[in-house]
Amino acid sequence: MERVPVLSLGDALLVSIQVDLQDNTVLALQEDLAERIVSTGARGVLIDISAVDIVDSFIGRMFASIAALSRLLDAETVVVGMRPAVAITLVELGLSLDGVRTALDVERGMKILRALSDRRGLPVADELDDDLVPVAEGGGPAAGA
């Protein structure tokens, strides 16, 4: 069975699907991704499907379930490079992939992930307002404040 490689890129995982998708390939990818998100602590998953020209309802649902499981593990999923024929097929199948972010190509996808992690990133100390005090362990104000 072919396995789809999962590459780690910064705090994101890059999955580029270059093979014909079989049901078991997809299931294996889902397992691999879940493990890799946990082991690398990735905050984003980018799936490039620009080489995929045939999808069925199973694979369509797979994108949705990958997105759902990565959100559970606190990572955002961006599906990039979907071909028009694939998009039309998914719409006809009634799969609108709610909750999955999409982009035209990998570059734009990375931009989305970067924007997301910037928004979520912890503020640096001098960005904090003066009257805000970092919370110390135990929930009380930090000593000396």
Binding site: V79, L90, V91, S96, L97, T102, L104, D105, R108
Partner: peptide, 12 residues
Amino acid sequence: LKTVVAARLMGA
């Protein structure tokens, strides 16, 4: 609606 959803799926 279908056209709009398909465009969204492609990231537009």
